[in-house]
Design a protein around this nucleic acid. Structure first.
Length: 303
DNA sequence: CTCCGGTCAG
DNA sequence: CTGACTGGAG
């Protein structure tokens, strides 16, 4: 298969079929791109849209977010899920201000060093915000490349170096064209080459897809190891955080005790939130979101 | 490798 | 009811 043909076909398809998403509007800054990418980690586009708009309206720059306490970021995150991302995005804003004068860095190395920015997000920002030529490999791209090139119906659970190499080989030489192709690969995986029910009939590379050529059936088992939610610490963390999010300032432990009956699990979940930096003890058997309200006053000394 | 939210289509 | 969703970090 010709790499050139593959990227060209998918890019041309993308130009005609791309969803109209706010972070794809020409001229959006690197900060907006970064915010969108972090929100989109493990979260579907349709749920990110409103949160993205609200977030950027309130914090249009890294400096604006860095100036507010983490508690505000956690609240604004709402029910997007994985609230540690809100914490890390706040930490990331602080790091951008401290290390890069408030400007999102454009070098891959510097991006990777930021909190909450990993292999995928760093390359996404470098490519989509700065037009650089990097393989941008998320779960969609892994699946598309795995099918089209290797002929495998499913990719592995995580991005490996080999995935980056395989994807890089499909990219056009011109940086701008490569960035466009990366967005196109992702869109193809999100809309056409989906995990369970691929729409091969409308796929622009159906005729040169190794998986189709192999005649293999659709993937059998789950793409990812099943994750339980009900009854897990994650659910309890979510319940605890919901109470803290809706309160202003410290919350008595007694109120947190009401969200879950199992003392052991509830305590473990709360301790985990503290360890992650999302929650902090506020004295007198109370807890609050990180940095919510005034600093903890030092114990008053008896005169 | 495991943990980490929350929602929704099938 | 399960699987999937533009991953990252310990």
């Amino acid at each position: 298969m010709s790499e050139h043909t593959f990227a060209t076909r998918v890019s041309r398809w993308y130009e005609r079929n791309a969803r109209d998403l706010p972070w794809r509007v020409p001229g959006v800054g690197a900060w907006a791109i970064l915010v969108s990418e972090v929100m989109l980690q493990q979260t579907p586009v349709v749920r990110v849209l409103p949160a993205y708009e609200a977030w950027l309206a309130r914090w249009p720059t890294p400096a604006a977010l860095a100036a507010d306490p983490p508690a505000e970021a956690i609240r604004m995150w709402g029910r997007l899920g994985y609230p540690r991302r809100a914490m890390r995005l706040h930490d990331c804003a602080v790091a951008i201000v401290e290390r890069h004068g408030g400007e999102v860095p454009d070098r891959l190395e510097q991006l990777l060093a930021l909190p909450g920015v990993g292999t995928y997000t760093a390359r996404a920002v470098a490519a989509f915000a700065y037009g650089q030529r990097h393989p941008v490999v998320d779960t969609n791209v892994r699946r598309v490349v795995s099918r089209a090139v290797a002929g495998e119906p499913d990719a592995g659970p995580a991005t490996r170096p080999a995935d980056l190499v395989a994807t890089e080989e499909l990219l056009p030489a011109e940086p701008a064209e490569a960035a466009l192709a990366s967005a196109a690969f992702m869109e193809l995986g999100a809309v056409v080459c989906t995990a369970r029910s691929p729409r091969c009939a409308v796929c622009p590379v159906e005729s040169i897809c190794a998986w189709r050529a192999s005649g293999q059936a659709a993937p059998a088992g789950p793409t990812r190891r099943p994750q339980r939610y009900a009854g897990t610490d994650r659910q309890v963390r979510g319940l605890l955080l919901a109470v803290l999010r809706e309160s202003s300032g410290p919350v008595p432990r007694q109120r947190l005790d009401q969200v879950w009956t199992d003392d052991v699990q509830r305590s473990r979940a709360l301790a985990g939130l503290v360890t992650d930096g999302l929650v902090e003890p506020a004295g007198g058997e109370t807890f609050r979101l990180a940095g919510d309200g005034p600093a903890i006053p030092a114990p008053a000394l008896d005169a």
